[in-house]
Amino acid sequence: MSFPSLSEDQLDALREISNIGMGHAATALSQLIGETIYLRVPRVTVTDIAQVPELLGGAERVVAGITLQVLGDARGNILLIFPRDSAQRLLARLLGSEEEGLLFNELGSSTMKEVGNILASAYLNAMGSLLHLTLIPSVPLLACDMAGAVVDYVLIELSAAGDLALMVETEFHGVDPGEELIKGHFFLLPDARSLELILDVVGGRR
């Protein structure tokens, strides 16, 4: 199976699954920071691996990126990308400290990983119980660096199997319309075989 041959029904199914998963993740995040979290309609993109950094807002933009592998019945990667200032604000909210280098110290980075863990677990739990699949997140990994450098590990893995990446993306953001806005992007990148399995289960046959 190749990624580009997805039908409109299949794309809808992926968006819907992701919306449910992300709904649970957003609830978890909003309980964590005591603020309502809003979701955009998920986007499903099939693209050449070379285009992925552009879709993340540019290869050189500095981000806090958390990656987790999806283990269990389906395989793939989850990427959680926060612009640097959003990550900074998220940490300030969680830790009650405005310290500058927070993102790079032990406490800050383990807090970010824990946020990644909570969001990914909520997402995969919801998706797994919907699809009757066991989906387990791996230990989260964190890097705060240029977006291209943060994601190329995932692209390398995908590129070993082909030239394309399928991304299910949801943008989320807090309420504050001003400077204090917390926003981020949640990406699911299933491998080709797992995508097939997921689509089989939802019945969105080609």
Binding site: P53, A59, D145, A147, V150, D152, Y153, I156
Partner: peptide
Amino acid sequence: RIAEPPARLVTYGLGSC
């Protein structure tokens, strides 16, 4: 990409690549 002066070739955000 192949190039000659005065060009500069740039690639952004190398990680494990």
